[in-house]
Each structure stands twice: as structure tokens, then as C-alpha cells.
Amino acid sequence: MRYERPETIDQATSLLAGAKGKAFVLAGGTDLLVRMKGDDFEAGLVVDIKSISGMRDIAETDEGFVIGAGVPCAALNEHAALHAAWPGVVEAANLIGSTQIQGRCTVSGNLCNASPAADSVPAMVAAGAQAKVSGPKGTRMVPVVDIPLAPGKTSLEKGEMIEAIVLPKRPARAGDAYLRFIPRTEMDIAVVGVGVNLTLGSDGTVETAHVALGAVGPKVVVAEAAAKTLVGTKLEDTALATLAAACSAASSPIDDKRGTVAFRKDVAGVLARRAARIAYDRAGEK
């Protein structure tokens, strides 16, 4: 295995494109290094992207918040403006692992690892986040939802990497939230995760709603029909009940030791209701 630490995106993508055998981007390494220790792991090349300029920065631009692919999740919480604009995305990212893991793990890595239970992904999808993908053919913007394809598989082509995640600008009266269910209080893999993102009219009526579900399918699920049921409501009890039923219906989880199909579907509804309430209250405060 070769280790490279390029200083520009072009160097990184040409290294990745030219690699013989398997090549991996190294961001925080909290998934990759665990895999590396496995007996069946093989790599010709590991490209550490953290020395590329801008990779460790969070920038507030006309597009919104641009989170470099080397930014550890702990830094999202330390960025006051980002935290104020997207508390749901930040709390989802901060649920990943322990303090030690937070010092290294990135949202881009969480996305590219393509685990169905990745915590930051439903929150980013609900937020309408885009991935800035760079490759030998240039740069393209890809909705975050289109990066993972199936467990461990992404839509990135050979030579491509995520340069940054872009969260859109926030209008007034907008709020988001992410909740997950785990059997412990810390350090566990989501049995179900739900991200909700709402914007409200001046009278408190929901104008736009986005809901995404984690760990209830082979990849993040966009619960579009469920989200639509919230539009025009003020999150009355009946609206929340409708949302919960629609989220349960949108879930197609597996049975495993962490939870049964019936349990996961039920929890998807419960968490959606609670996350919607939190997002709504946050939106009302702005």
C-alpha cells in the first residue's frame, strides 16, 4: 500500500484516477482504518486529502455553508453560524461515535462509507445538501441523496472524490432536526434515524417539508409523500399522526439483532413525529 498526501485537488484526483488496484480517499479514517485492520483488506493506494488547501475549512459563501471534506465533525459544533442555521445537521454529525471519533470523523466520509445507518446522511438529505464532486473531468454538484447507492457502494466514479458538502442558505422561519434510536445512550449504531427540515409561513403554517429516513432500507430513504402531508398544517396532532403513518409506510427495513421490521417501522414513525416537532419549534424561534 502506498500513502500519498497531495496538496491540490488535481493531484489527488489524478492519483486516484491513475491508481492500479484499489484506491481509497483517507479523510478521518474512522471507517477506513478499522477496515484496513481486517485480513481481507487490500489497497494499492491511500490518498490523504487533509493537506489540500481549504479541505479543513468551513466557509460561509453565497451558496451557503461549504464544509471541506477534511473537517472533523467536532468542528461543525464549534462553528456558531453553521450551528444556528442547521442545528439538525450538526446534531446528527455530532452523534457519530465518541469525543475521540468526533475529533477525526467527517460528514463526507460518513456519506462515502455508504452505511445505511450513517447518522449525518438523513439530516443532510432532508437539508437538501449537495456534494461538490471533483474528478479528472472536472467538478460537478451532486445531491447528497444520489451519492450512496447500496451498502458500501457509491455513485462516485474512478478518480472522483468529494471536495466539500454544501448546505444551502437558510430563509427565515426554517428549522431542522435529527433523531436516532439506539439501545444505549451513546456510542451505538442507529436502529432508525430520522431527519426533518421545515420552513414556515408567517402564521406558522408549514410551507415546505423534507423528511429522510436512515437504517430502514439499503440506503437513505427520502420520505417525500410523508413530508407532503405536513405542508399546510401547523403540526396538529392529526398531522403528526398522518406523518408517522406515512414514515412507517415508507420504511422497508430488515430484521436483525438490532430490531425487527415491525419495530423499526414503528420507531420511524415515532421519531419522525418528534423530530418534526423539534424542527417546527426551532423554525418558530427564527
Binding site: G29, V46, R104
Partner: peptide, 18 residues
């Protein structure tokens, strides 16, 4: 547990080269 550039990390999940 080890500190690298002021951040708490697991040194088992950091490459020496990093």
C-alpha cells in the same frame, strides 16, 4: 487516546504517516 493538533483522537485510528 492521544492529542493531535489539539484534538482528542484514538491513535489506533490514525496513521503514523498522518
Amino acid at each position: 487516546s492521544t492529542m493531535v493538533d489539539g484534538r482528542l483522537v484514538c491513535s489506533c485510528l490514525v496513521l503514523g504517516a498522518e
